[in-house]
Design a protein around this nucleic acid. Structure first.
Length: 505
RNA sequence: GGGCGCGUAGCUCAAUGGUAGAGCAGCGGCCUUUUAAGCCGUUGGUUAAGGGUUCGAGCCCCUUCGCGCUCACCA
């Protein structure tokens, strides 16, 4: 480990401590309470007016210190909060005061015992009787100074460079309280979603991440290899085909929350791996799924934020049901003047688009053109929660036809904040039709199009045993977290977002 | 992948082509209820890396690396 000048000074302190018989990384701590518990106990005793003395041993990271000779103030912080330490030489003795000054640096984990008191300025503090190093920090935290003033966090300079923040998330979290808050909120969102689905009699399952045939979405997969089996495997791009196999097995309501992997471009809303929720609900259809979606998001908002109105990117988004509903065909007519029903082939549609002067990549698949249109003309305008419904059949090989309309399937996507949030449909459960759809994909997509949905014989076999009619649903959890924590890039809601590898010598 | 921008001390940031600086952190000193960041002093640099132009480059040019924004891509 190469040490900087600042780190060498701290390393010398370690040697100084060891030669004084003090272990800088002791095996055990004697902490009995969190900081929040100690403060709460004190406030309770104070309110009761009993004069009860609250003695405690707490631990935490040293975040600020102001040494003033015979008197010192410091702040320590643990996962529950932060408290001021108050040290006086006539309480501790000269030797201990000197030890505190000589051994401790900002960032060190320490434990300290004493009575909780209020100082003359009214701040709840621990009057320190004893202290001990728990873990010496060698590298200084990338925050110059950080303290509580009148209950408000004052930051004089802190880690702000996004690259360092993402590459060294541990330092970012250690120093930036609001970053910790984002990830606590994220955890609460996932828990609220689980609670909602559990309460609605869904059971949570886990399906393979390593798959011999990928599917369930249109995306390029990552490929890996099993050495002993001499078999190439794909990292899943969705859970769909496995979850629907489970409905064949009789699990009428299943869901999975987990990681998907897509070998595509990264952007403010795309990471190579991302967290997805999918559920499948037998005897339901896409209309019922829309309603459940509205209820679920509202329930998550209630539980996590206490409000259904959130501010994202300066705009208020209201998640109160019902969401706005827009028919895809009509939406496109209104937004760009193209009626997709008048252009049944990729050729006719693309010439209509060219006639409008639109710029796009020509493609053999009509569905991809429509997808381009909705991404360009509809998605950015859906700030308020919106269901866009009734999609073209050829980009939805797993969705069931709309009765009486062979070119359209019962599918919707949910949008909010100008982003796609979820995707759902009435699931196709006719094995012959499903086989035909797979074959269609093979014909209409170019052979080298990696997003072409591959044929999955085992999935067809499962379906041939009888698959209940059902509604299915998938949602990007990361994007929901962006919306509910007002973060404009997915990297801010991923603990360790993917960054390009860097030579660090 | 294309375009634009950025990269200076541990952190946050300055510096017309002309001596690389400030605040905080660090180090030293003063100080028994501080909190305006207590007061005073002081150390610290391969200016992302490499090359070029120039008497002289943090600054201009080229290459590379990384990050950001944006376009393309993206169910």
């Amino acid at each position: 480990m190469e040490l900087s000048d600042l780190e060498k000074i701290r390393f010398e302190k370690i040697q100084k401590m060891r030669s004084a018989g003090i272990e800088p990384y002791p095996t055990r701590s004697e902490v009995t309470q969190t900081i929040a518990e100690a403060i709460k106990a004190f406030e309770k005793a104070e309110a009761a007016g009993s004069g009860e003395v609250i003695s405690t041993t707490i631990g935490g990271r040293l975040r600020a210190s102001r040494l003033m000779g015979k008197l010192a103030f410091a702040h320590i912080e643990d996962g529950s909060g932060r408290i001021q330490l108050f040290l006086r030489v006539n309480e501790l003795g000269e030797e201990a005061m000197l030890r505190f000054k000589d051994h401790f640096d900002l960032g060190d984990y320490i434990q300290t015992s004493g009575d909780v008191v209020r100082t003359r300025t009214g701040e709840i503090s621990l009057q320190v009787r004893d202290f001990k190093m728990l873990a010496k920090a060698i590298t200084p935290l990338p925050a110059a100074k950080d303290e509580m003033v009148d209950g408000v966090l004052v930051r004089h300079a802190t880690l702000a460079d996004p690259e360092t923040r993402y590459r060294q998330r541990y330092a970012d979290l250690a120093v930036n309280e609001e970053v910790r808050r984002v990830f606590r909120t994220r955890a609460a969102i996932v828990k609220a979603m689980r609670d909602f689905l559990d309460d609605h009699d869904f059971i949570e399952v886990e399906t393979p991440i390593l798959q011999p045939i990928y599917g369930g979405a249109a995306a390029k997969p990552f490929v890996t290899h099993h050495n002993q089996l001499k078999q190439d495997l794909y990292l899943r791009i969705s859970f769909e085909l496995y979850l629907k196999r489970l409905t064949v097995g009789g699990f009428d309501r299943v869901y999975e929350i987990g990681r998907d992997f897509r070998n595509e471009g990264v952007s403010f809303k795309h990471n190579p791996e991302f967290t997805q929720l999918e559920f499948y609900w037998a005897y339901a259809d896409y209309l019922k799924v829309m309603e459940l979606t509205e209820q679920m998001i509202a329930a998550v908002c209630d539980k996590v934020l206490g409000t259904r109105k959130v501010v994202f990117d300066g705009k208020e988004i209201d998640f109160n049901p019902p969401w706005q509903r827009v028919d895809l065909r009509q939406g496109l007519i209104d937004a760009c003047g193209i009626d997709i029903n008048q252009y049944p082939t990729a050729e006719t549609l693309s010439s209509a688009m060219l006639a409008k002067g639109m710029k796009f990549k020509p493609d053999g698949a009509r569905g991809k053109l429509i997808d381009h249109l909705l991404g360009e003309y509809l998605e950015p305008s859906f700030i308020q929660p919106t269901f866009l419904y009734d999609y073209p059949r050829d980009i939805s090989p797993l969705a069931k036809n709309k009765p009486g309309d062979p070119a359209t399937v019962e599918r919707f996507e949910g949008f909010a904040g100008g982003m796609e949030l979820c995707n759902a449909f009435t699931e196709l459960n006719d094995p012959f039709e499903q086989e035909e759809r797979f074959l269609e994909m093979g014909r209409e997509y170019k052979a080298d199009d990696e997003e072409r949905h591959p044929m999955d014989e085992d999935y067809l076999r499962a379906m041939s045993y009888g698959m209940p009619p059902q509604g299915g649903f998938g949602m990007g959890i990361d994007r929901l977290c962006m919306l509910l924590t007002d973060r404009r890039t997915i990297r801010e809601v991923l603990l360790f977002p993917h960054l390009r590898e860097r030579d660090e010598e």
